[in-house]
């Protein structure tokens, strides 16, 4: 049996705040297989971003076990085994788009020739070929976010963690990027963890939907999607899609029944 890429057992995370301890994650159990596209959905404060940050070793669980590629998240971070896309593109304004994509490659010590080749490759993956020499302010918000995805794809990490990457974009742009993200996932075969607020987005993209609820942050439902891998945008009108969306909505409602 193949071991899961990400494996969480009885994970707890308690933040000490001025108003007393806050249980951000409670008894989280989850395993993610290689090649999965996993969405985390839930209202604010449900711990979906916190869980993603735990995987990235940007937060540290208080108790429980968590492995990434079979090693601890901290070791995985040091081994540069994931790319992380934040809610804002966060491109450096003093670097061109190509320069921004090159940033992780420079830090990780890729050769000059390798850097050039990789930049060209990932910029064409996100459909930004002609924009290598532009500066971020010359691009729209959606293009900037695509550049930040290219930046996360530039180095050899087989995990891609995305924290509400399209949250700040309008719905039309978001639809396009969702479609492109699915293609990207199909061509690269990466394991993707994706945090979102949007039910249609989660259902459209995922092979596995993790429904979470707040106070304390916990998993209320894990839904294995029955949708085919090939997903045109109009699949969202199919009965199957609506049934899954309904189950997600029920899960979110159940989470709220506690308070």
């Amino acid at each position: 049996m193949r071991s899961p890429v990400i494996d969480a057992k009885d994970l707890n995370l308690i933040f000490e705040t001025n108003d007393g301890p806050v249980q951000a994650l409670k008894d989280v159990n989850l395993s993610i297989e290689r090649g999965d596209f996993v969405s985390f959905i839930g209202p604010s404060g449900c711990g979906k971003t916190t869980f993603l940050r735990c995987i990235a070793a940007l937060e540290h669980p208080t108790s429980g076990s968590l492995t990434v590629n079979g090693i601890s998240p901290e070791e995985a971070r040091k081994a540069r085994s994931y790319g992380y896309v934040f809610q804002a593109a966060g491109l450096y304004p003093w670097r061109t788009i190509a320069g921004n994509v090159k940033l992780p490659l420079e830090i990780m010590g890729y050769t000059q020739a390798d850097q050039e080749a990789r930049v060209e490759k990932v910029l064409s993956l996100v459909d930004l070929q002609g924009f290598a020499k532009k500066f971020p302010w010359q691009l729209s918000g959606g293009m900037q976010q695509r550049a930040s995805i290219a930046r996360a794809l530039a180095f050899d990490a087989d995990i891609l963690l995305m924290d509400e990457p399209f949250g700040a974009l309008d719905e039309i742009v978001r639809d396009r990027l969702n479609e492109e993200l699915l293609k990207l996932w199909a061509t690269t075969g990466k394991t993707i963890g994706f945090v979102t607020h949007s039910i249609p987005e989660a259902v459209y993209l995922s092979t596995k939907i993790v429904v979470m609820s707040p106070r304390p942050g916990r998993i209320t439902d894990v839904i294995e999607s029955t949708l085919p891998k090939e997903r045109p945008l109009d699949i969202r009108d199919s009965a199957e899609f609506l049934a899954i969306a309904h189950r997600v909505r029920e899960g979110l409602r159940a989470g709220h029944a506690y308070d």
Partner: peptide, 8 residues
């Protein structure tokens, strides 16, 4: 955080 994810 971004730089930390690169282990810079």
């Amino acid at each position: 955080d971004l730089l930390r994810t690169y282990n810079a």
